[in-house]
C-alpha cells in the first residue's frame, strides 16, 4: 500500500498570548484510500494539526510529505497551487461564496486550475452535485439552501479537481444526525470506491468509530494510533 501522508516530528508553538506548544513531536502515516478520524478533547490541537497537514499553516518544525512530495519548506504560491490540484477541504462552517450559485461555487477551483474547458468543468460540477444529492440546487444562490445541502455543495467543491486527499475540520459539527449520516456515507464511499484518502477532525464518537482508523490527541500529542 502506498502512503498518502507522512508527518514526522511536527512541533508547533504559538507565541501569543504566551509561548505555548500546540503540537509536540507528532509523527504518523496515512495510507492511500484510508478514512481516518482525528479525535480528542477540545483544545487538544486537532485543528492546529489539520491546518499544518493542509499546507495552509507553514509555521512549524518537522517534515510533512503528501503524495510522496515533500511539502515542508515550499513557498506559499506553490503550496496554493498544490492545494488547488491535490487537496480538498471541507470546513465546519461550510463557507460557500454566497454571491455565487452552488454550481459556480463548485466550478471555481476547477476554473482556477484551468485544465478543462468551461463546459467540461460545468458538466463535472453538475455530476458532483448529483452524486452528492444536491443536483437540483445547482443554480440556486449558495446562501439560499439549507445547512446540510450547503455542506454537500462544499464537499462537491472539494472534489471537483479529483484530489487524492480530502480533509475536513469537523465537517459534520454543524449538522443534525441525519445529515451527519449522509456525509459519513459519502466519505466512506469516496474512500472505498474512489480510493480517496479522507482525514477528518471530529468530536463525534460514533462518526469516528465507524471510520477506518482513529488518531487520538491530547495536549498536542498523539496518544492513540488505533
Amino acid at each position: 500500500m502506498s502512503i498518502a501522508l507522512k508527518a514526522e516530528n511536527i512541533n508547533k508553538f504559538f507565541l501569543v498570548p504566551d509561548k505555548f506548544q500546540a503540537l509536540s513531536d507528532v509523527s504518523f502515516e496515512i495510507n492511500k484510500g484510508e478514512f481516518v478520524s482525528i479525535t480528542g478533547k477540545s483544545g487538544s490541537g486537532k485543528s492546529t494539526l489539520l491546518y499544518v497537514l493542509s499546507t495552509m499553516d507553514t509555521d512549524y518544525t518537522g517534515t510533512l510529505m503528501l503524495n510522496d512530495q515533500k511539502i515542508t519548506g515550499n513557498k506559499q504560491n506553490s503550496l496554493a497551487a498544490f492545494r488547488n490540484q491535490h487537496l480538498g477541504f471541507v470546513f465546519q462552517f461550510h463557507y460557500l461564496l454566497p454571491d455565487f450559485s452552488c454550481l459556480k461555487n463548485v466550478m471555481i477551483p476547477a476554473m482556477r486550475l484551468g485544465k478543462l474547458k468551461q463546459d467540461e468543468i460545468e458538466y463535472n460540477a453538475h455530476e458532483k452535485l448529483k452524486m452528492l444529492g444536491v443536483g437540483e440546487q445547482a443554480l440556486k444562490p449558495a446562501s439560499k439552501i439549507s445547512g446540510g445541502q450547503q455542506q454537500r455543495v462544499a464537499i462537491a467543491r472539494a472534489l471537483i479537481n479529483e484530489p487524492a486527499i480530502l480533509m475536513g475540520d469537523e465537517p459534520t459539527g454543524n449538522l443534525d444526525s441525519k445529515n451527519t449520516a449522509v456525509v459519513f456515507e459519502i466519505f466512506q464511499q469516496l474512500a472505498r470506491e474512489h480510493n480517496k484518502t479522507i482525514i477528518t477532525v471530529t468530536h463525534d464518537n460514533d462518526f469516528a468509530e465507524k471510520s477506518d482508523r482513529i488518531i487520538e490527541m491530547r495536549d498536542g500529542k498523539i496518544i492513540g494510533l488505533a
Binding site: S54, M56, Q76, N77, A80, A81, F82, R83, N84, Q85, F89, Y95, L97, I108, P109, R112, L113, R157
Partner: peptide, 16 residues
Amino acid sequence: IKEIAILKAVGFQGRH
C-alpha cells in the same frame, strides 16, 4: 475576508 480565505484555501495565490 472569509471568502478570500476560502479562495486561498482552494488554491488562489496572492497574485490571483
